[in-house]
Design a protein around this nucleic acid. Structure first.
Lengths: 236, 236
DNA sequence: CGGAGCGTTGAAAGCCCTCAACGTTTGTGG
DNA sequence: CCACAAACGTTGAGGGCTTTCAACGCTCCG
């Protein structure tokens, strides 16, 4: 069971003790694998579990009445996908898989017990939601202040940092199952224009995005183009 | 001292008991008034207080090296402006006043005691940061999926809902000390274009934005134009 | 084999930015 | 009290970036 490994990765980011990890693991209720492109939690529905992404990639999104969709963030292994639903009882956004994904779910009632017995774990959960909020702020900056090529460059840089933090990047390369359509929905661009941006990044030898994987070719230039701040979250 | 009133307003949104309000109030260390356009908390600096906005308007922002600035959110009376700094010790963004603003500050160490003695207050603080995160997601949607007029319309609608929640909107009108430059920095637009959008909103009798105040003339149309969801935060 | 999803490319149109200029208001110092 | 500068708002013209529309190729899968 690779679950332990992944919880260890959560701990790497959030400074959990092994006791806390064990407590969380013991509270896991079941583990589900969802196919790609599957809605897992619908906006507004009352929920009673938190889901921890163990394997794969998931996303949060909102859609307007006219069908257009905006990604609000995506989760990598080790991230909670619907933690907001624990204190609030529901989500203000939808959560879906991007590729196939495996999630471990923990009932809120068991979490109540854990949080009572391990006060630092409550703090860790809080930190996890703050981490999400920090990412949201990066996304606001990206959408508000960068042009198309800058947005994609910024997204690639941010994702690299997150992937590296969980040991899933090697030599500035990582697997990212986003389609050009997904990238567009994350960056506020049409898939047509994402295609042109991706081509330009390749032509300029900045990054190679294809077949669900990313190879960053010139980190310094890519970061400059995306106005990416390496210490972007100020968490260190 | 109008402080009690404002803390009551916090409680209205966050369901605090009078005991909790009293505990928070007793922990207030000092109350400062800052002039307009003043940096209050700088990104990355170690901080030891949380600041509660009592009167005025403040904003969070990030700026790139080249001087361009993106607002990440703004605070209205009753909002904490740097709560993230309590668990994390620093902010990943700057906090400044927009107009003149009065803030009450509470040392982290006193907060530690309060949180220990009033566990529900810790929960309230968590909810407050989740509220911020929900607003961030609205901002991502606004920037990613709306055109210029839609962004401004959406911002006006959201602000109305927030103002009304703290009793500062009457007859679909409220005071908003944002300049057109500020609106541009919030919506990812130039101030020149914000000017044109504002004129168009007035010409079409949707809203009248001038002299630091907003009068919404046609709520239904404005909301449609901004794809604004009245239940946007799913908090009810 | 046909269709759906994804990627790719071109042409034209539109939205927003940039640049530039000017008016008004506010605040400050002579 | 007035002159002046700074901040804010306003308007026009031109250009660039991104979207829209359209078409086509490829791969995978039923």
């Amino acid at each position: 069971m690779s679950l332990t490994l992944d919880l260890t990765r959560v701990s790497r980011r959030l400074a959990m003790t092994t006791v806390q990890i064990a407590a969380l693991e013991a509270a896991i209720d079941n583990i589900n694998t969802y196919p790609r492109r599957t809605l897992v939690v619908r906006r507004g529905i009352r929920i009673h579990h938190i889901n921890l992404l163990v394997h794969g990639t998931m996303c949060q999104y909102r859609d307007a009445r006219d069908g257009c969709r905006q990604l609000l963030g995506y989760q990598l292994p080790g991230d909670f996908v619907d933690l907001q639903g624990y204190p609030l009882g529901r989500l203000s956004y939808n959560v879906a898989t991007i590729g196939e994904a495996t999630v471990a779910s923990i009932p809120h009632e068991r979490l109540n017990v854990i949080v009572r017995d391990h006060p630092n774990l409550a703090r860790m959960l809080w930190l996890s939601t703050l981490h999400d909020a920090s990412l949201h702020r990066e996304w606001i900056f990206r959408l508000g202040r960068l042009d198309a090529i800058g947005r994609v460059a910024n997204l690639l840089c941010e994702t690299h940092e997150r992937m590296e933090a969980i040991g899933r990047a090697q030599n500035r390369a990582y697997a990212l199952p986003l389609t050009q359509q997904d990238i567009g929905e994350a960056c506020g661009l049409t898939s047509v224009h994402v295609n042109r941006v991706v081509r330009k990044l390749r032509e300029d030898s900045l990054a190679d995005v294809s077949c669900g994987s990313v190879q960053i070719l010139d980190w310094a230039k890519l970061a400059r183009m995306g106005k990416f701040d390496p210490n972007y979250l100020c968490l260190a």
